[in-house]
């Protein structure tokens, strides 16, 4: 490789959805250690909306010791679209990733068009409330929201329930791909034995229509880009996309 001057790029793998109990330090450490051992570099932990900044920094420190880059994430379950807007106004700058659980069509539509929303997730078992259709995808494409697919139900469900879920996911993934909506594959698990390696997550993506390259992108390039973009937005010097405050002087 060195001889031909080509440098192999190592993928940065991310799991943006871990459901660990942050109050159970031992359990959380076990899960995070496993995440690091499985080859992830970036990990997103779902936190309660009222989590304080000190707690986030403590978690960041724990992850840094394990060689993981911690991403703070909040999962919003709004009662309606007005409530979603209120929650976004209150929480957007507190967390690096904002995911909205779309329980109704109105919430799904509002979340898809709101540029403060990063990820859209839908009820796993209530298939009539999976609102990711073409209209939703078009709105999500106009905004910046991606579709999040948790692999946990694929591991725990069996028989007709899993068949039905795979069928819905295949349809949603096809729509998302045709509208250019990014797809993020996450674990959504809370126990270490349910965790899978990044490549295994990509292999699970194969079940609902993601090819090998897209499957790997869904656990590496896409979530990493999302986090990078949000971190830039949350940084002090950010003015607008592409515009940064380099130097500030009084007389300017």
């Amino acid at each position: 490789m060195q001889g031909c001057g080509v440098v192999a790029m190592k993928r940065i793998f991310a799991d943006l959805h871990l459901r660990v109990n942050v109050k159970d330090s031992a359990g959380m450490l076990r899960v995070l250690s496993k995440v690091a051992a499985l080859g992830y570099d970036l990990v997103g932990v779902s936190l309660a909306a009222e989590t304080c900044a000190e707690e986030v920094e403590r978690l960041r420190g724990v992850c840094a010791e394990l060689g993981l880059d911690f991403v703070s994430r909040v999962d919003l379950r709004p009662r309606g679209s007005a409530n979603l807007i209120r929650q976004l106004r209150r929480l957007r700058r507190k967390f690096e990733v904002v995911c909205v659980s779309c329980e109704s069509k109105a919430i799904a539509r509002q979340a898809a068009k709101d540029r403060r929303v990063d990820l859209l997730s839908f009820p796993l078992l209530d298939f009539r409330r999976r609102f990711f259709d073409r209209a939703e995808a078009e709105l999500a494409h106009g905004g910046v929201a991606g579709l999040e697919v948790d692999v946990k139900p694929l591991l725990v469900l069996e028989g007709p329930a899993r068949v039905r879920l795979l069928s819905y996911l295949r349809g949603e993934v096809a729509i998302a791909k045709s509208f250019g909506v990014p797809i993020v594959v996450s674990s959504g698990v809370s126990r270490e034995l349910m965790l899978r390696k990044p490549r295994e997550m990509a292999a699970l993506g194969f079940l609902f229509g993601l090819d090998e390259v897209y499957g790997l992108d869904a656990v590496s390039r896409i979530p990493v880009t999302l986090v990078k973009r949000n971190r830039e937005k949350l940084s002090d010097g950010f003015v607008a996309p592409g515009i940064r405050l380099v130097k500030e002087e009084r007389d300017c």
């Binding site: 034995l193 490549r199 997550m201 292999a203 699970l204 194969f206």
Partner: peptide
Amino acid sequence: LVRASLATIT
């Protein structure tokens, strides 16, 4: 196919 199946073993 085998990779995906192995990943579903719980």
